[in-house]
Nucleic acid binder design. Structure first.
Lengths: 128, 128
DNA sequence: ATTATTATACGAATATAATCGTATGTTATA
DNA sequence: TATAACATACGATTATATTCGTATAATAAT
């Protein structure tokens, strides 16, 4: 049983770059580095190297037709979020999604957020 | 700004041992190793070493009054779950708890779980 | 055309995590 | 008492993640 490409867990540094790509869309190393530099002091080649590794792991795809390669996420933000959640649910919540949700809710949620969530619950109930 | 003891993020191996301790209560290395062995092929000294490291990090406390030290979690499961959630929310959900909750809900939740969650939402609404 | 700029590739250094063997000491048992 | 069983401590090894310098090649500027 080999692991599906889509559920490889990105490391912390990798997730940082994925977040940038999801927000910016396809980008070159330089663009990504410029963005990441706004909040961190990370060298250009560090960003390059991480992207190369991510490419090996198939976490990103890249267009090599121009000299400056253009990187893009291999998976959507949604798919990755689901994968990370699934992992956390298994390892810290005994596999129970509702336990995680309840912990998230009683930890920190504003009134507006609660309403948003109630809305979604209603929709889910319709479907079932 | 130094990091609070209670929000040190346990590694994967550490979380495995914490899960056992939360379930079993205070236990010796041998007891923990026996339990972990039921699902993994991990050496005794590996478990010992990880517990020693966890003790240095203050993830566990230990009673050294007997030859076989007795280990116990330094923090409750709830506190640790909240800490892990907070971390994931920051790194993968742009800091939005409700985004995480909604992703969790639309990913995989049974009808019973949805009802449990609705119940909690009602209680939260009462308070606010 | 020469030089400066900009790109990738690659390897090495560093940090952390996870693994386990061996040394050493303590307790139980034969 | 001698020896087997069991405990912690410690160091070494391996794996993975992160960092960045340097080599090399392509493009742009002078």
């Amino acid at each position: 049983m080999s692991r599906d490409k889509s559920d490889i867990k990105p490391t912390e540094a990798e997730l940082t770059l994925l977040n940038i790509l999801w927000k910016m869309g396809p980008a070159t190393v330089r663009q990504i580095h410029e963005t990441v530099s706004q909040t961190q002091k990370t060298g250009y080649t560090t960003v390059l190297k991480i992207l190369q590794i991510m490419h090996e792991k198939a976490l990103v795809i890249r267009d090599e037709s121009n000299r400056a390669h253009v990187y893009a996420p291999a998976n959507s933000e949604m798919v990755t979020q689901s994968s990370l959640l699934k992992d956390l649910i298994l390892k810290a919540f005994g596999g129970s999604t509702s336990k995680l949700v309840m912990r998230a809710l009683d930890t920190s949620t504003s009134k507006e957020e609660i309403e948003d969530i109630r809305q979604l619950l209603n929709e889910l109930e319709q479907q079932s």
